[in-house]
Every structure is written in structure tokens, then in C-alpha cells.
Computed example of a mutant assay.
Amino acid sequence: MSLSEQVLADLSAQIKSWGKECGFAEIRIADVDLSHAEAGLQAWLDAGYHGDMAYMAAHGTKRSRPAELVPGTVRVISARMNYLPSSESWREAEKQHTPDTAVISLYARGRDYHKVLRSRLQQLADKIAAQIGEFGYRVFTDSAPVMEVALAEKAGLGWRGKHSLLLSREAGSMFFLGEILVDLPLPVDEPVGNHCGQCQSCIDVCPTKAIVAPFQVDARRCVSYLTIELHGSIPVELRPLIGNRVYGCDDCQLFCPWNKFAQSAVVDDFEVRHGLDHARMVHLLLWSEAQFLRMMEGSPIRRIGHERWLRNIAVGLGNAAVTMRGDPEIVAALSSRLEHPSDLVREHIQWALVQHVSAIN
């Protein structure tokens, strides 16, 4: 397909307008040359910072060379979608969780973002096809070896913060990213400068000190990795640092000054479900596997499974001993899981009970 420069320029403007109709906050376009990012990716992998996430290294250069992943690709349509639930005082609310309340990352309290973004990116692709006819493309939402932050940064959606997430002057970092790799030589947008300056709030506040240097995260220490990606036992020395964070961690975003500009979602998919913004851990621990699967239907949390869900909550309840030592309701809930068939669950339940016994003594 051969389109004139003017047609491509008009199409680019139309894509950005259609993007707003599909629920995206912003759409920008970049070429797919990520050669500048390859060395950093390899150094991160060589340092072992990816932990057990073998998929991060499994695809070789395809992760930093989109045209190898999808032959014919010359541009990326990079999109961001806000996910913050509608609340002006969200940061204050997030700092007021009680020790027995489960802290679940804000992005995971509503519908699974993979499904939401993929569907809406497909809608956008369909609009393009309706305008120009068939073209080569592939939609991605954190679902394939794509360096989406590097692509979004190149497209000008923001800059990479010291916590390694993308930051926008207009929207902070409380948004999802998605991409459409296309074979259309659309005009590209300019990147923006880095505006972190001397600030290192994200580094200072990280509970496990996982941000080992500006722009360098050791995933093996990150609470999000430990509670979501890690399949086995959570290292004993890191358990007390996790506190009551049972699925992910927002601390580096919560204390980032740029998130005073964070924007609420315009789609209702990300509104809180099942009271997950203030759920008590003793109640969550008592969910059967069938209850867990039913309650987490359509949620990103479902993918960790019931076993790791119980593992994480056990750690949270163990850490509650710091201020609620020997609490009868917590001890009873933990004790009810002592005979769980999973070695992983029993190990963390026993650890949690020891924290309460030790606190009493």
C-alpha cells in the first residue's frame, strides 16, 4: 500500500482523534528503532534483575527490535489509558490503610486491563482499516516481548522516571500503555525531556529498596514481583518489608510529585470491585478456591491463583503482628489454614503465626 505524505499526515491526526473516542487519554506515534535501549536491557538481564521472569530473556533481540517480532513493522501507535478510580483524594486514602487491611495495587482493583486495552486497541485498528483498507498490524498490551515504555518514551507520551515507569507532566504515571505495531509510514511525534530533576522520592520510599539506582529496578526485591511474578516462597528476609501489600505495590507512584496531576479513568472498567480498596485480610484468607475464582473473575489478580493469593495474605497477616500481636481473629484465621494441602501456603501460614507468638512473648 502506498499512501501520500498528506494522506498519512491526515490519517495520523484522525488516529489520535479516534483514540480519544476509544477511551485513550493520548495517542502518539514513533518509529521502532530501539537500538539505544538494547545495551541497557542486556545489562539488566545480565545482572539477573529479572529474577524468575525467564520470558524477559527468552525472545532475544525481538524485544528491542519490533520489526523482527512483526515483520514489516515501521511504526508504533503508542497509547495510554488512565486507570485511576474517580477520587480526588486518592493519595490520602491510600496512606490510611489499617494494618489488617489488604493493600492491592490500584490498577488491579477493577477489570483486567489486558482485556480492556486489547479490545479498545482493536477498535482503533478497525477504524483505521475502515478508512484505508487492509493494512499490516498487531495489537499488544503487556502481552508479548515489546519494550512498551521505551516505545512510549520515543513517541513522546512521557519520560522514564527513576522508578523505571513512564511519567507524564499532564498525567503522572497512573495509566496503562498499549501499542499497535503497523506497516504504515506515519509521521512520528517528538519525544519529551526528562523532568525528574534531583527528585528521588521513589527511590527513598521503596519499602524493599528495589530501585537500586536511578532507572534500575532489581525485580527480585520489588513487592510487585514478589507478590505477582514469583511462584515460589517469598524470601524470609523480605517478608517483613512487604507489610500488608498483598498484590503489587504503588509506593513509588504514591509519593511521586508528578502524580498530583494523575487523571481519573474515563472508562468504568477500572472502578473498584468487591471492596478491594478496603478488604480485611482475615476475610480474604478464608475464601475457598472456588470463591477466589468466582470473585476474581475478570480481574488481573486471578492469574496468580489461589495458592499464591493465600501466600501473600499470610505474609500480610504475619506483618500485622507488629501492631496487632496475638489478635484472636487473625490467629484463628491463620490457624484454619495450617492443614492446607499446599506446602507453599503452610510455610507462610506457619511463619505468620510465629510472628504473632513472638510478638506476644
Rank of each mutant, 00 (worst) to 15 (best):
G110P: 04
T61Y: 11
R280L: 01
E148N: 11
V146A: 03
V212E: 07
F140H: 10
K95R: 15
D218N: 14
R346C: 01
A130V: 02
C199E: 00
I234K: 02
L184F: 11
D204Q: 15
M295E: 13
L241V: 01
E179N: 07
C222T: 00
I132E: 09
M53W: 02
H278L: 02
V217P: 04
V188R: 02
L285A: 09
L117Q: 02
S105W: 04
P207Y: 07
A43Y: 12
A108W: 01
V272G: 09
E329I: 06
T323C: 00
D52M: 09
H114T: 08
R221H: 12
L11W: 07
R337F: 04
S64Q: 15
A108R: 10
R303I: 06
D31P: 13
S264M: 07
P145K: 06
E68I: 12
T98K: 15
W287G: 07
N319E: 01
K20D: 10
A57T: 08
D343N: 14
P214I: 09
S17G: 14
R160G: 10
V282E: 03
C202G: 08
H306S: 11
F261K: 05
L151W: 09
V246Q: 05
A108N: 05
M324Y: 03
I242K: 04
A54L: 10
G275K: 01
P191L: 04
Y49H: 15
M56D: 01
